[in-house]
Nucleic acid binder design. Structure first.
Length: 491
RNA sequence: CGGGGUGUGGCGCAGUUGGCUAGCGUACCUGCUUUGGGAGCAGGGGGUCCUCCGUUCGAGUCGGAGUACCCCGACCA
């Protein structure tokens, strides 16, 4: 065994780390907290990007690009943005190097100090709203429905591959509207887009909800989110969509003249998902044999592995494989034929399982004789023979089946790990023994939320959008509550 | 920034109270036999033992300083 993974049960975070490294998705770089995304990992991210980008465009958005550097003063303009903002940012103070007069190499030229420092964007609201000021005069200029694909930097103290890195890739949508209702509608619409992407494409069920004031984005009126449950019972925030009200418009003095000829501040939303989704994808479905990719995101949906002893056999098998590949391609199925003679079939089987390829087709002398192929599906690891005749349509429906099956599996896992707690003791017991989502009553105060967090490390993931009205008592304070919120320990 | 740990071929590690030519697994290269679940055998290449200073006849091993990374906290828009 060349690439043995740590088992999930034994040590979940070690398993995750091993998997990311061994499936060739990413690795730590020479730069503190920053990762290298390797070609295979990036191929998956590109598929995510392509699908999301189309969804954004289908909902009327367009892409743009704003600067990487933001003048420091921009961060002082929106009061709550300043207040709630983590200050761990990369700061550019100089613009030139010089040769070290006392040795070799280069040093920072102290004469080249910037008058005002530049911050490497941790998020782009400030620079974008500064820019929007110049774009908006009239209600006729609205709405602006912009999205940016970019990298951002947050100097995190502790990092984990994909889940929290100092630099990460994301998209951030920043929209400007004439009315509050329109901006709220946009915020909710994009949350739905994220939820649909998570469930249909990533096969990952998510809960939609609103963050409590404590967990809200600095500068937002409301932060909506999608929350997913990982296999170890911890929650992961997979995407956020913020209703910003007029806060940024006021901070950057962005006004417009409405139909009545009166001046008003512009209403805003912002929303984003990041390479963190890669972490979510990995942790949602994978097992001790490696990655399990949903067919919708697998760079190769099918891999064909020839099994042969003699070169003549290989020639026959290869032409059969090419024939199958062509048929599959016609149905928009991506196929890789691995006919390398530098690795043996058994090695390849293990390798493609590790990399999460949904369907494997093996063709050997036996199959040539019987006009069959051997199919193996990654999600269940089942193997069976199918006739070569009419194979493509069967593979197509098999892929659909796998996509649905891994969603169902994740959905059932969440269902089994979503519990209600009616007392603080019960709450703590569930948290320690089982984890998962816990539905419990909360009195609505930040103090209670904070106390529970400090005592148990569990946070309110969200107030679910489909929350049912139910009168009860807060598990912590005993005060009245009108509905249950979702608690969990989280990444 | 607090508390703990670790730096030894690409990767994972062992290395005894200081001792002789620094070892094992894996990966890599060559050859033969193999190929339907990570092949076997034989041979081979690859090391400033994190850095500097010190103790010593002698340091991977002991002491000091520095540095990097990992884990636990704090932080995580």
């Amino acid at each position: 065994m060349a690439k043995e993974l740590t088992s999930r049960a034994e040590n979940y975070s070690q398993w995750y780390n091993d998997l990311v490294l061994k499936a060739d998705l990413a690795e730590n770089s020479a730069v503190r907290g920053c990762m290298v995304i390797k070609p295979y990992g990036y191929a998956i991210w590109e598929k995510m990007q392509a699908i999301l980008d189309k969804m954004f465009k289908d909902t009327g958005h367009y892409n743009a690009y704003f600067p990487l550097f933001i003048p420091k003063s921009f961060f002082s303009k929106e009061a709550s943005h300043v207040e709630g903002f983590a200050k761990e940012c990369a700061v550019v103070t100089h613009y030139r190097l010089k040769n070290d007069p006392n040795g070799k190499g280069v040093i920072v030229d102290s004469d080249a100090k910037l008058e005002e420092e530049l911050i490497v964007r941790p998020t782009s609201e400030t620079i974008i709203w500064h820019t929007y000021k110049g774009w908006i005069q009239s209600y006729r200029d609205l709405p602006i429905l912009c999205n940016q694909w970019a990298n951002v930097v947050r100097w995190e103290m502790r990092t984990r591959l994909f889940l929290r890195t100092a630099e990460f890739l994301w998209q951030e949508g920043h929209t400007a509207h004439a009315t509050s209702d329109e901006a709220i509608e946009e915020t909710r619409k994009m949350l739905d887009v994220y939820a649909e992407f998570a469930e249909k494409t990533m096969a990952m069920p998510v809960l939609k909800g609103v963050k409590t004031p404590n967990e809200r984005f600095a500068g937002a009126i409301d932060t909506y989110c999608i929350e997913a449950l990982m296999q170890d019972g911890k929650a992961l925030q997979a995407g956020t969509s913020h209703f910003l009200g007029q806060n940024f418009a006021k901070a950057f003095d962005v006004t417009f003249t409405n139909k009545e000829g009166k001046s008003d501040y512009v209403w805003a939303s912002s929303w984003g998902v990041s390479t963190r989704l890669m972490g979510a994808l990995i942790m949602s479905h994978s097992d001790d044999n490696g990655l399990v990719l949903p067919p919708a995101l697998a760079p190769n949906q099918v891999v064909i592995i020839p099994i042969y002893k003699k070169d003549e056999e290989l020639a026959l098998i290869k032409s059969k494989a090419l024939e199958l590949k062509e048929e599959l391609n016609k149905l928009n199925i991506s196929v890789k034929i691995d006919d390398r003679d530098t690795h043996k079939p058994g090695w390849k089987f293990a390798e493609y399982e590790l990399k999460g390829v949904p369907v494997r087709i093996a063709i050997g002398p036996r199959d040539l004789e019987n006009q069959t192929v051997e199919i193996s599906r990654r999600d269940t690891l089942e193997k069976f023979s199918l006739p070569q005749e009419g194979l493509a349509t069967k593979v197509k429906s098999l892929l659909d089946d796998i996509q649905q099956n891994i969603y169902n599996k994740a959905f059932n896992h969440r269902k089994e790990n979503t519990r209600t707690a009616d007392s603080y003791d019960e709450f703590k017991t569930i948290l320690d023994e089982k984890g998962g989502f816990i539905l419990a009553h909360w009195d609505g105060t930040a103090e209670t939320e904070e106390a529970i967090k400090n005592e148990t490390k569990a946070t309110i993931r969200c107030i679910p959008l489909d929350q049912k009205t139910e009168i009860g008592n807060c598990i912590y304070s005993g005060k009245e509550s009108k509905g249950r919120v979702i608690f969990a320990r989280s990444y």
